[in-house]
């Protein structure tokens, strides 16, 4: 059974930093949202948690492209993560969660699983 999801509004266009990332708190926990204006689509969302250190830091990494793939480099130990697939480029056994993201008017929305408790309440 597919978990129920919702499109959660997490921030506005003004919060974004071009060519860089910001962190937001969602029903699924901490998520990093990147805005790469030179790309189409220009928005990417992956888990904010660095799988190698366990720290919530990925939004603070440097973005760029390697062999055409959009990536962020972990600011702690410098591994690269593909922003579309979440795959770690240095270790094929490691990847991070990605989230669908869209621009709704002035708002950025992420598709995240609805928490169990919230489902029951609804």
């Amino acid at each position: 059974m597919k978990a129920r999801t919702c499109w959660e509004a997490v921030c506005t266009v003004e919060d974004l930093v071009p060519e860089s990332g910001i962190a937001v708190w969602t029903a699924a926990g901490p998520v990093a949202v990147f805005y790469l204006p030179h790309r189409l689509p220009a928005l990417f969302a992956i888990s904010h948690t660095d799988p190698f250190s366990g720290a919530n830091v990925l939004a603070r990494g440097l973005t760029g492209d390697l062999k055409g793939q959009p990536v962020v480099a972990s600011p702690l130990y410098k591994q690269h993560f593909n922003l579309v697939t979440g795959q770690c480029l240095e270790d094929e056994a490691v990847s991070v969660q990605t989230y669908p993201v869209l621009l709704d008017g002035n708002e950025i929305r992420l598709e995240v699983p609805v928490k169990q408790s919230e489902t029951e309440a609804a």
């Binding site: 930093v17 071009p18 060519e19 250190s53 830091v57 603070r60 440097l62 973005t63 600011p75 702690l76």
Partner: peptide, 22 residues
């Protein structure tokens, strides 16, 4: 400055030294 923000390593971006827990 706006043009330079995305160029900096995290330590330069936040003008402090990141430690292992973020």
């Amino acid at each position: 400055a706006t043009d330079h923000v995305p160029l900096q390593d995290t330590n330069d971006t936040f003008m402090a030294n990141m430690q292992k827990n973020g």
